[in-house]
């Protein structure tokens, strides 16, 4: 009896949850469909549009405009570059704070986090002028630099929460057994730290890929990543729904897949370890 009730309940829950899930996902599903239609069909009423023939036209057209791959590549360089440089700076720092905590470590962590609270609009003016005067406007180097600084606090924090979970006693045991520092790091610590570093990398690439204030304000064309490329569709000429859909699908697909893989780590990274 009880089982029958709970089975029915779980069926109802399932129907409700699937409905809500599909409604939330619907806009993404819709642009995937639109991206495989011709421009004329893409603005037709939904039923007519669905019945229209499928085509790769829009993808071909977006790729033909050779600039798509330039922007895609810029996005890759900016997100991966800023993440790698950030890791290079953050790994030693997080390491030291996790294994050699001092009286000030907590204050230091909180201070780093506080730099993340500065609204971009607040420092837009000086950043714009600095970039202009140093010839960094519309350069990849400039954007990589800014995004490294923006996400550095998150990288340090995430690594710190991961490193803290590595038991310190292991280090002591190694030292007792006579391992030198090089071996200690290479054979004991590195393997234990790799998963944490990998998830930090993943989350940070996602955040940098989607950053849409500095990438829009500090680039024009040469260094413009996909966020800016897509923004250029805000004042298009002629019919563009299929092209915009195809460009959008290509812009979000890689990150959507990465994001799905990293959903567990996401919570820790985005809440600075406050929710695990």
């Amino acid at each position: 009896m009880a089982r029958a009730v709970s089975a029915r309940r779980s069926l109802l829950t399932g129907i409700l949850a699937w409905t809500i899930g599909l409604v939330i996902f619907f806009p993404i599903l819709w642009i995937v469909v639109l991206s495989f239609k011709s421009e004329g069909d893409a603005i037709a009423a939904p039923l007519a549009m669905l019945r229209a023939p499928w085509t790769f036209e829009a993808y071909a057209e977006v790729q033909e405009r050779s600039d798509y791959f330039k922007h895609f590549w810029n996005s890759v360089v900016i997100s991966v570059g800023s993440t790698l440089i950030g890791l290079l700076i953050a790994i030693p720092a997080a390491w030291a704070m996790a294994f050699v905590p001092g009286r000030r470590t907590k204050d230091l962590l909180m201070w780093m986090l506080s730099t993340k609270m500065m609204p971009a609009a607040g420092v837009l003016v000086p950043m714009y002028l600095i970039f202009r005067d140093f010839g960094l406007l519309d350069t990849l180097a400039g954007l990589v630099g800014v995004l490294t600084l923006i996400n550095l606090p998150i990288i340090v924090w995430m690594l710190y929460t991961y490193f803290k979970e590595i038991p310190g006693e292991i280090l002591e045991a190694c030292r007792m057994d006579g391992a030198d520092l090089k071996r200690e790091i290479l054979y004991i610590l590195a393997p234990m730290a790799v998963p944490g570093i990998a998830s930090t990398l993943l989350l940070n690439v996602i955040l940098a890929w989607n950053e849409a204030f500095w990438t829009l304000r500090l680039t024009a064309s040469d260094a413009a990543p996909l966020t800016a490329f897509i923004a250029s569709y805000s004042s298009p000429e002629g019919l563009f729904y299929a092209k915009l859909s195809a460009a959008s699908v290509m812009a979000i697909a890689p990150i959507l897949i990465l994001g799905w893989f990293s959903q567990k780590q996401l919570v820790r990274g985005l809440t600075f370890g406050a929710v695990k």
Partner: peptide, 9 residues
């Protein structure tokens, strides 16, 4: 999914 969609898209 929507969380991973870039703001301009």
């Amino acid at each position: 999914a929507p969380f991973f969609v870039m703001p301009t898209v």
